[in-house]
């Protein structure tokens, strides 16, 4: 069984945020409530740049997490993948969604984890920027990042198509899969057609059947990315508008 924890998750409804809530739910861990189940950061109020939050994450981004560590003191962590590594290292002793530290599969999971962190996340993020949030429409920027995002989807699609379990590594769904899930689920927002990638689409939908993922994706508020697939591009554009204000304000602030 999992040991006693005192986890506090700082998050909001984004592809990086739900990685952590999915892993917490998959492991059946309890995490500290604040109103809802977590401390919700409100980008529109720039909560992620307030001093109390920067104490936890000097980088001013979600997700971040605090827990009482083995030594009885608080540990503060940021960067979604390092948080996921921490959670399975400490609480997934039965290796439900991970592999033993140092095993071949462990390194392969790490491989995809870094691929998501250094590739899929930043590139799809840049696509969203140029496609939805940038103050001016730059066709080159949109194409550049759309091509790269599609190339990355293709890489994953090929890997999944040749995997006998249908997961990225070995015989089970791991933090490598959960790390990518929120981004792939947000393909419609990015303007990428998931139907181009059949194995990827199947993987995305199969993971939805897991109670842990299903619960975790709705933290701290309902996950609506999949519903966007049924919307027209104009309707998605309308929804993106709501984010545009804080994204652009944030850019100004960061430029100071």
């Amino acid at each position: 069984m999992a040991e006693k924890s005192d986890i506090h998750l700082y998050t909001t409804q984004t592809p990086n945020g739900i990685k952590v809530s999915i892993v917490l739910e998959e492991l059946g861990l309890t995490y500290k409530a604040c109103g809802h189940d977590t401390t919700q950061i409100e980008f529109s109020k720039n909560t992620q740049k307030e001093p109390w939050f920067l104490e936890i994450n000097p980088n001013g981004r979600i997700p971040a997490l605090t827990d009482t560590f083995e030594d009885g003191k608080t540990i503060r962590l940021f960067e979604s993948a390092s948080i996921m590594q921490y959670l399975v290292d400490r609480y997934d002793k039965d290796h439900k969604i991970s592999y033993p530290y140092g095993s071949r599969e462990y390194w392969e999971v790490n491989n995809w984890l870094f691929w998501q962190m250094g590739g899929l996340g930043p590139m799809q993020g840049q696509l969203n920027h140029f496609n939805r949030y940038a103050p001016e429409k730059i066709e080159y920027g949109i194409n550049r990042y759309k091509n790269e995002t599609r190339r990355l989807y293709r890489t994953m699609d090929t890997a999944l198509a040749s995997s006998s379990s249908g997961y990225l590594v070995g015989d089970r769904a791991t933090i490598a899969d959960f790390s990518c899930w929120g981004w792939v689920a947000a393909a419609a927002m990015a303007g990428v057609d998931i139907n181009e990638f059949p194995a990827l689409k199947q993987w995305r939908d199969r993971l939805l059947e897991r109670p842990g993922l299903e619960k975790g994706r709705h933290v701290p508020s309902p996950h609506r990315a999949l519903e966007q697939e049924k919307l027209t591009d104009e309707e998605i554009e309308k929804q993106a508008e709501k984010n545009r204000a804080w994204v652009q304000a944030g850019m100004k602030n960061d430029a100071k």
Partner: peptide, 21 residues
């Protein structure tokens, strides 16, 4: 363990925050 997690955190920050930009 604590330092091990923190090393990992900064490596992820480098990989996702420094490299791509």
């Amino acid at each position: 363990h604590k330092e091990r997690h923190l090393e990992s955190q900064w490596l992820h920050f480098q990989m996702s925050g420094q490299g791509p930009y």
